[in-house]
C-alpha cells in the first residue's frame, strides 16, 4: 500500500502534465464545436466558453442553416463523390501496379520503380498550370472526374510504393502453386493478392480518402461550380466575421466525417503512416 502511494506520488506530476497537454490539444476542436452551437446573435460578442456557464444557450439552428443552404449540401455531396471515387480508383490502380512491380518480371522494372519513388516528392504545384490548360481544352475542367484523376495520379507514387512493399512480403510458394494450378495472373490478383493485401489496402484507402476529403488546393484550381466542402467554406471565409455562424458548423460537418473514419480505422491509419515513412 505504502509503496503504491509512493509510486503514485512520484508519477503524479507527470500524469498531471500529460493530462494538461492532452486537454490543451483537445480544446481548439472543442472550441469549434461549441462555437458552432452558439446562437448566431451572440457569436460576434461572446466566446464559446460561455456555453459552459449557460448550457441552455446551445442551439442547432446553425446546423439547420447549413443543411438548408443548398450550396453547402451540394458541396458535401460533391466531396463524397470525389473522395469515394478517388479512393476506389487509386486503390485498384496502385494494387495492380504494385503487384506488377512485386511479382511480374519485366525489363527495366527496377528503373521504373526508382522513377515512381522519385515522383513521391514532386509537389503537386508543379503540375497545376499545364493540367489547368489541359482541362480547359478537354472539358475535364470543373468536373468531378477531372478532380478524381488528378488526385489519383498524385496519390499513385505513395500507393504503388506501399502496395509493392506489402506484396513483396507474400510467400513466393503461394503464388507459384497458384500459377502451376493454371490460374491466370488476373485470377491470382483478384482471388489471392487483393484479399491478402487487405491490411495495406485499408491503410491506403483511409489515407487517400482523408487526403481527398481534406483537399483545398486542387479543387480550388480545377473547379468553379464543382465545389467540395472545403472550397465552399473557403468562399464563406472570405467574408469572415459576419457569417461565422455558418462557417463554424460547416467546418465541423466537414471534419466530422474524417474524424469518424479516423476513430473507426485508427489502427490502419497509423500503420499507413509507418509504412510510408519508416520503410
Amino acid at each position: 500500500m505504502a509503496a503504491r502511494i509512493v509510486r503514485f506520488a512520484t508519477k503524479a506530476p507527470l500524469q498531471i502534465l500529460l493530462l494538461v497537454i492532452a486537454l490543451l490539444w483537445l480544446v481548439p476542436t472543442l472550441g469549434l464545436l461549441l462555437t458552432s452551437v452558439m446562437p448566431a446573435e451572440l457569436i460576434s460578442t461572446e466566446g464559446w466558453w460561455k456555453i459552459f456557464s449557460e448550457p441552455s444557450l446551445a442551439t442547432f439552428d446553425n446546423y439547420r442553416a447549413v443543411f438548408d443552404n443548398e450550396d453547402l449540401t451540394t458541396a458535401l455531396w460533391t466531396t463524397v463523390q470525389i473522395a469515394v471515387g478517388n479512393t476506389i480508383l487509386l486503390v485498384l490502380v496502385s494494387a495492380m501496379a504494385g503487384y506488377a512491380f512485386a511479382w511480374l518480371p519485366f525489363p527495366g522494372r527496377d528503373w521504373l520503380f526508382v522513377l515512381v519513388i522519385a515522383l513521391l516528392v514532386v509537389p503537386l504545384q508543379t503540375a497545376l498550370i499545364p493540367i489547368f490548360s489541359l482541362y480547359q481544352s478537354t472539358g475535364l475542367f470543373d468536373t468531378v472526374l477531372g478532380l478524381i484523376l488528378f488526385h489519383t495520379a498524385f496519390g499513385l507514387p505513395f500507393g504503388v510504393f506501399l502496395m509493392r512493399n506489402f506484396f513483396i512480403g507474400i510467400p513466393k510458394d503461394l503464388l507459384e502453386s497458384a500459377r502451376i494450378d493454371g490460374a491466370s495472373e488476373l485470377t491470382i490478383f483478384f482471388r489471392l493478392i487483393l484479399p491478402l493485401g487487405l491490411p495495406a489496402i485499408a491503410s491506403l484507402a483511409i489515407f487517400q480518402f482523408l487526403w481527398t476529403w481534406n483537399d483545398l488546393i486542387v479543387a480550388l484550381t480545377f473547379g468553379r461550380e464543382t465545389q467540395p466542402i472545403t472550397v465552399a467554406v473557403f468562399t464563406q471565409l472570405r467574408q469572415f466575421g459576419g457569417n461565422i455562424e455558418l462557417i463554424a458548423p460547416a467546418s465541423f460537418v466537414s471534419l466530422a466525417i474524417p474524424l469518424v473514419v479516423f476513430f473507426a480505422f485508427q489502427r490502419y491509419f497509423a500503420q499507413g503512416l509507418l509504412a510510408g515513412s519508416v520503410k
Partner: peptide, 25 residues
C-alpha cells in the same frame, strides 16, 4: 492510448479546417 489519440486526432482534420479552428482561437 487516450493521450496519443488526443494528440493524433488533428491529423485527420483538414489543414484548412484546422486553420478555421485556430482563427477562432
Amino acid at each position: 492510448v487516450a493521450f496519443r489519440t488526443a494528440v493524433f486526432m488533428p491529423m485527420a482534420i483538414s489543414l484548412f479546417a484546422a486553420g478555421v479552428i485556430w482563427r477562432i482561437m
